[in-house]
Amino acid sequence: MGLFSSGRGPRSFDYEPRYHDPDDEDDRELKRRMQSQRALQVRRSPYSLYLFLGLLLITILIYQSI
């Protein structure tokens, strides 16, 4: 890459083509859809709801006392 580099020709280019397999892509799309549906079905524990309500109640009480 210098100014006076002589004797260098173009670099060789080795490319291995990757073939498209539509069945494989359909399987990946189905798996992705199933995982997103499974994530929606996961139920959170009610502890997080109780924690949120407790923090909300404390915040309201502090705000009212000021």
Rank of each mutant, 00 (worst) to 15 (best):
I66T: 09
R43W: 01
Q35A: 06
R33Q: 03
F52C: 07
Y47K: 07
S6K: 10
I58P: 09
D26V: 04
A39V: 03
S6H: 12
R28L: 01
T59V: 13
L61E: 15
E29D: 08
G9D: 11
S36N: 01
L51Y: 11
L61K: 08
F52D: 14
V42C: 00
G9N: 10
L56I: 13
Y47W: 13
S6Q: 15
L3Y: 04
I66P: 10
R38N: 04
L30E: 09
M34N: 01
P17N: 06
G54H: 04
H20V: 05
S5P: 05
S36V: 00
R33K: 07
M1K: 01
D26M: 05
S5A: 13
Q41Y: 01
L40C: 04
L56D: 10
I62D: 10
D26I: 06
Y15K: 03
S6F: 15
I58R: 02
Q41D: 11
S65N: 11
P46N: 07
Q64R: 15
R28A: 02
A39G: 07
Y15L: 12
T59W: 14
Y15T: 07
P22G: 00
L56C: 11
L3K: 03
Q64L: 15
S48H: 12
F4C: 00
L53Y: 08
D26Q: 07
A39D: 06
L56G: 14
E16A: 09
S5H: 05
P22W: 01
R8T: 13
P17Q: 05
A39R: 03
R33T: 00
Q41C: 02
V42Y: 00
G2N: 12
F52W: 13
Y15C: 06
S65Q: 14
D23R: 02
R11I: 12
Y19Q: 02
E16R: 07
P22C: 01
G9T: 12
F52R: 08
M1Y: 06
R18C: 06
S12H: 11
P46K: 03
L30A: 10
L40I: 09
R11Y: 14
D14C: 09
Y63P: 06
R8H: 11
R43P: 01
H20E: 08
L53G: 05
S65K: 08
Y19E: 15
D27C: 01
D24M: 07
Q37W: 07
A39T: 02
L55Y: 05
Q35W: 02
P22M: 01
D23S: 05
D27H: 02
F4V: 02
E16Q: 15
M1S: 07
S5Y: 04
D26A: 12
Y15V: 12
G54F: 13
R33Y: 00
Y47S: 09
D24Q: 10
M1F: 03
